[in-house]
Simulated scan of single mutants.
Amino acid sequence: MDNKFADQAQIAVVSTFPQLMDTALRGDLNAACWQRELEGDFKEIVSKLELKANLTEISMDDLQSLRLSEQGEVARAQIINDFQLLADAGASPSLNLIKSYERDEEFDFISTDVYSFHVDRSPIGTDTFLCTYYGAASEILPNHLAEQKVLVPEIRLKLKALHEGTAEEFERFLTEHYFDLHYQAKAGAMPVKLGLGHLWRLAVDHPAQSCLPCIHRAPLEKEGEYRLLLIC
């Protein structure tokens, strides 16, 4: 299989789940990809799941209860296997059927929803795992091609206008409202599309981290098409 991400220095491409878990993320390397070409009819699964909200969590029991064709059963077995691999590794996977995420429209100059490039933060050592089985795929952005939004002069001035207090209190305000987690692409930057079927491990900002956190975002959904995403 060709390495689709060979020219991306921040990405380690592996061929097994143990390699995905054992790859050391450090320095500029902040993403690992178990690159796969999955078989099965994931579209059939999406068509038979019930969307109860714009984002609906699908239980393994719900998935097991579907009546599927042979290719649908192949796809289901793949999802269940991925779910179990992550659970056995100590993660808490969630299978989501997504029409859309909630949008942050409070301010017209900065957004803190998942459609904005952002990093994940945790008080403990962890990683973000995700796999898009169907629909539009997530994207990541090399850190050197991104700029923290709170450091963009015009955005910072507008944020300061919302806050009255000391410089130390302002920095705490940025953290408490998650403004500091969000980034914008520099001119000419091209995001990396994570594709379908690949299982990704993305670095999170936490106290013991030895690499930069991975900047990523949810894609805009395609009109009339749901996404099927495994994430934890």
Rank of each mutant, 00 (worst) to 15 (best):
Q78D: 13
Q78R: 12
N81G: 02
D82I: 00
D82T: 00
F83P: 00
Q84T: 01
L86M: 14
A89C: 13
G90K: 01
S92F: 09
P93E: 09
P93N: 12
P93L: 12
P93H: 13
P93A: 05
S94G: 08
S94V: 02
L95N: 06
N96D: 08
L97F: 07
L97I: 08
K99N: 12
K99V: 03
K99L: 10
K99D: 08
S100L: 05
Y101E: 10
E102P: 03
R103L: 08
E106A: 06
F107D: 10
F107H: 14
F109K: 03
F109P: 02
D113S: 07
V114I: 12
V114H: 07
Y115G: 06
Y115H: 13
Y115I: 01
S116H: 12
V119L: 05
I124A: 14
G125A: 15
T126M: 10
T126W: 01
T126C: 14
T128H: 15
Y133D: 03
A137V: 00
E139R: 11
I140G: 06
P142A: 05
N143F: 11
H144Y: 11
A146H: 06
A146W: 10
A146K: 09
K149P: 01
V150Q: 05
V150P: 03
L151D: 07
V152W: 02
I155F: 04
I155W: 07
R156K: 14
R156N: 15
R156Q: 12
K158R: 15
L159W: 05
L159H: 08
L162T: 00
L162K: 01
L162Q: 15
E164H: 04
E164I: 00
G165T: 00
G165N: 12
T166F: 00
T166W: 00
A167N: 11
A167D: 15
E169Q: 12
E169C: 00
F170C: 11
F170L: 05
E171D: 08
E171G: 11
R172N: 07
R172K: 15
L174N: 08
L174W: 06
E176W: 01
H177V: 02
Y178H: 15
D180R: 14
D180T: 06
L181S: 09
H182S: 12
H182R: 13
Y183P: 06
Y183M: 09
Q184V: 13
A187L: 10
G188L: 03
K193C: 07
G197Y: 13
L199G: 14
